[in-house]
């Protein structure tokens, strides 16, 4: 058996181009429609034609992380069918993108259709990664007046996504990116982890919020709404809400002041 390595997909091995398919993710489908809209608008601003396959549901990650690989594989197979073709698949979530290029191939290791699933994964791009490395966009126009704390979500570890998002945000006029302590630590969401380990998850999130609040940002931003749902939810329950945004929303709103 080939030994597993951390997934570092080199940009050159993925298809780029301006006709793209978009995977909205189940979280945006259910809660964060504005993030999905921002994703479309940002891509269109860059000259992309965005296709939205109607049959899409979820990337399969919840069951994959939960250990129910059979259930997860059913969903991944469905996703592969819905996203047939060879266009880049753009996902406004580092976590769902990583599920497609790393998680899915792992759970298909012993399956006959591994090649198709690997092919699907090679087409998956996290949105900001695609903007910076797929389309070669290095700076962003417009203006966005805010102190932004950027939460490096864990699924972008070992990928070029985190630095890409930071660079893009920093290039926007008016934005001051404020660093905060222990930025490399997880926020404690972890999908089903947040409900099966409620105490540890809350402990982790509370610590993360303390660090973030100390930096006094106007906005907490991330490329994963899952982390934002968890941190924003904790903060609000605590009576000290913080404003959370997806990077795509900031990019779109900056354009309004271009």
């Amino acid at each position: 058996m080939a030994h597993a390595q951390s997934a570092l997909i080199t940009p050159s091995s993925r298809p780029a181009g301006k006709r793209v398919q978009m995977m909205a993710t189940c979280l945006c489908d259910a809660f964060y429609d504005d993030v999905a809209r921002a994703t479309v608008e940002v891509l269109e601003h860059l000259g992309c034609t965005v296709e939205f396959p109607e049959g899409q549901t979820c990337c399969g990650q919840p069951a994959f992380n939960g250990g129910d690989w059979e259930a997860s594989r059913r969903v991944v197979r469905h996703t592969a069918k819905v996203f047939a073709g060879d266009l880049p698949i753009i996902v406004p979530s580092g976590s769902c993108a990583a599920m497609m290029f790393h998680g899915a191939p792992l759970e298909f290791e012993k399956q006959p259709d591994l090649p198709e699933i690997e092919a699907l994964g090679k087409r998956a791009w996290e949105l900001v990664d695609f903007i910076v490395h797929g389309l070669g966009v290095k700076t962003w126009p417009g203006r966005y007046q805010a102190k932004v704390a950027f939460h490096r979500s864990c699924h972008s570890r070992g990928t070029c996504t985190g630095p890409a998002a930071l660079a893009l945000l920093s290039s926007i006029a008016g934005i001051e990116v404020v660093p905060f302590g222990e930025g490399e630590q997880c926020c404690g969401f972890g999908g089903t982890f947040s409900v099966s380990f409620p105490n540890v998850s809350k402990g982790m999130g509370t610590l993360k919020l303390e660090h973030i609040r100390a930096a006094q940002p106007d906005v907490l931003a991330s490329i994963d709404m899952s982390c934002m749902m968890h941190l924003g939810g904790l903060a609000e329950k605590d009576g000290k809400p913080i404003k959370t945004l997806h990077v795509a929303q900031i990019l779109r709103d900056a354009l309004k002041n271009a």
Binding site: C26, E54, G55, Q56, T57, C58, G60, P62, A63, G66, G67, D68, A71, S72, R74, V75, R77, H78, V82, T192, V195, S196, F197, P198
Partner: peptide, 16 residues
């Protein structure tokens, strides 16, 4: 323990 069962979800997630 504490992990939600995925059966119903995966059924739904394969039926657009």
């Amino acid at each position: 323990a504490g992990t939600p069962p995925m059966g119903a979800w995966s059924l739904l997630a394969t039926q657009p």
